[in-house]
Write a protein that binds this DNA or RNA. Sequence first.
DNA 1: CCCTGATTCGC
DNA 2: GCGAATCAGG
Length: 180
Amino acid sequence: MGWTDERVELLKKLWMEGLSASQIAAELGDGVTRNAVIGKVHRLKLSARAKPTNTAPRARPAAARPSAPRRVASASSSVSQMSAKPRISMSRPQVMGATALAVTPEMDAQLYVAPAAAELFIPEDKRLNLLQLNEHTCKWPIGDPLSKDFYFCGQHSLETGPYCDFHSRRAYHQMDRKRR
DNA sequence: CCCTGATTCGC
DNA sequence: GCGAATCAGG
């Protein structure tokens, strides 16, 4: 389905209201991706929304890409893959990211739902000291390393890293993507 | 990892 | 004009 007047209008409206590109894409439906939305937004020249104190000219990549082979689809071995994550869809009215939020009525209705525990509580019988760690235990340190109460998470760690699911997410969020 | 918008460029 | 792939960032 192409960009009918109606759909373009809806796009403009939602964009101005501050919804993210992916949210708008979901709203439009019909397999519209967030890239499609962003692309359209640019073509319509209606980018730049809610820019209070704008002084950032935005760093230009300066186009230093000679002939990088695009869409290299090495279909040599089509085994493996499948990251087993049913990724259905997100409950729509969700608003995340630090974009200009559009406060809809149904949102402020139940804004403060869960304080969300800052840490996992590890039962004493599951806590591990340094010597008890092995390749399958989460090595996330908890407490003061100098204290007697210090221990490691000890839950079963992921195959992809030294931490359990919970702490792996926590570690990544701030780590990586800095200094390359 | 999840996500955001911005840009490029083959179609 | 379109949008996937990429880039740059949170």
